[in-house]
Nucleic acid binder design. Structure first.
Lengths: 328, 328
DNA sequence: TTGTATGCGTTATCAG
DNA sequence: CTGATAACGCATACAA
């Protein structure tokens, strides 16, 4: 009869000689007479039955899907984040609906449509769009970006990380340091990296400078900044803290071109904890984000039954890792 | 009445004062009287209606979803692949169901269940599992892995890439070269990299050796191989071709530890085309895979109406890119 | 052309 | 504890 269409509960019921409702109960693990249960399970095995998630979703108004809105998966930090979030979701029998913004606000708008069409049970977003409209009635969690007290934000301890970087550089012998950053102007969580760094420098009485560029500023501005701080072939700083590992990496390329040795002449610490190929050495000395914990926190928060009782900021501890661009 | 539940077509129909079927037609872009169409679109806007994809899927038996089975998204090559595949799917209004195998065969089995539950319209798989059971009746496309003539395989021109690497090394002055590889024993597409390399070496009369390790062999085997080919501080090869960029990178670390300078003493070419942070410099000189074209080919193939008329092997051209580990 | 009615696969209610 | 039946939101065949 049904050659190409997958078997349904009705097929199973017929095959097992029981009622449709009984099959449903067995599938959903509800109490059912042992004899019936056996018959049903046998029929399921015989037919190779798999429940239809569309039917279930339609009926229960629950898709077991969470949308993840993130710039891309090309940047290795995002790649690992996506990976751990998907694993955390899968553990709970949830699926992930991946939405790449590519830093494009129009794309973000389209996605909130798509997300509503798919009736996702929750949204996890890592976005820099200052005026993203959050769809009502869907549990929403952000990463590294504070919206309001009603929207939980999961983030690494950025302030503590900046602090840690400053102390680390001092402990490693640096006498004059600088913080370099490129990023959106709005005060999001990552901007606390600077604040922590500055606070620690002030506390230690360590001379420092700050070079913060707006998003979109060409990288050559950094080159100019670095070049301007060269005096007779000697660089004004012996320690740098970059807002991200990527920036640290780029800065180091410039420093080398300028004849500076890393870490002998100038030590550099980044932020994120990127490893080569995801699991080899750290590409630079860095403050590493607890990606797996962040992923786990996002998922458990967005799926928590009572989102209102959840803290509005979940701050996870960071750690320092040696990556060849500091002494040690 | 309906406070928290999303508006349905019936709501729109009532609001617009038309019949349910008319709304459906408007939503699906079918011909409808202009007057009606306007009324419906107005009502849709007023209510903020978005179609329910579960309902549609249930009715049409089409989920507009394609499963992507891939080891992870932590390795940057996989990360870019996932990215481009999702973009190619999105362009066609398809969603992606991401399945990370983590190189675990049990996980793969679970996924084929999940994939059937979700009634995906197609599957794209990058897997090394030799006896993966392909679910019947679902369009299936593999990447870099030949199953049978009935399963289309999309791959870079691995043979040509190996060939190209050999010629490149010769042109750059190498006198004795070697191919290094670690990977699954089964003859998949990537193993053609060796064949192309060997064929070119033979053709050119260029002395060469091959060091191919089975999956799971500890990396230290390579170190041993390299160490064994050191004669009085001089390395036996002046050119190496590694099966992947990752292996090339690891090999280079070892070479440096052994006091060899790259590229002055020994030049190294990898395979894949990994860039730092996805879009900066290539991390090694490499044969780059056309990732975007591969993604596009996978998607258009898996969604093609007549899968039977599709070629069973789609081979995409590679190119050479300088990445600092060769002269030039 | 527009409206109506049916069924997709599932869960839940309710009567046996 | 089981079995029949309605309803979820949508697309479509068919009737008007």
């Amino acid at each position: 009869m049904n050659e190409k269409t997958a078997p349904t509960m009705a097929d199973v019921a017929r095959e097992a000689g029981v009622a449709l409702g009984t099959v449903s109960k067995v599938v959903n693990g509800q109490a059912v007479g042992k004899e019936y249960k056996d018959k049903v399970e046998e029929a399921i095995a015989r037919l190779g039955y798999q429940y239809n998630s569309s039917g279930r979703a339609l009926r229960t108004d629950k898709t077991n899907t969470v949308a993840l809105i993130i710039p891309n998966t090309v940047n290795p930090y995002f790649g690992t984040l996506v990976h751990h979030i998907n694993m955390a979701l899968e553990k709970r029998d949830y699926k992930m609906l991946l939405c790449f913004t590519e830093y494009d606000q129009n794309r973000e708008m389209e996605y909130i449509q798509m997300v509503r069409q798919n009736r996702v049970d929750g949204i996890i977003a890592l976005t820099y769009n200052p005026d993203l409209t959050i769809p009502e009635g869907i549990p929403f969690v952000t990463i590294d970006r504070f919206f309001s007290v009603s929207v939980p934000c999961v983030a690494a301890d950025n302030f503590g990380g900046g602090w840690m970087a400053a102390y680390k550089l001092r402990d490693l012998g640096c006498k004059k340091v600088a913080f370099l950053r490129i990023g959106s102007a709005l005060t999001n969580e990552p901007s606390k990296r600077k604040e922590g760094f500055v606070a620690a420098c002030v506390e230690m009485g360590l001379p420092f400078e700050v070079m913060a560029l707006e998003d979109g500023t060409p990288f050559s501005e950094f080159e100019r900044f670095l070049a301007e701080h060269m005096y007779d072939g000697k660089f004004a700083f012996d320690g740098l803290f970059a807002g991200t590992d990527m920036l640290a990496w780029q800065i180091i390329q410039v420093l080398k071109k300028m004849g500076q040795r890393v870490p002998q002449d100038v030590q550099v610490i980044g932020f994120d904890g990127i490893r080569m190929f995801g699991d080899l050495e750290y590409i630079v000395s860095t403050i590493v984000q607890p990606v797996q914990e962040i992923a786990e926190a996002c998922v458990s928060t967005v799926l928590s039954k009572h989102l209102s009782t959840v803290p509005s900021l979940i701050c996870l501890p960071v750690s320092y890792a040696y990556g060849g661009t500091t002494r040690e």
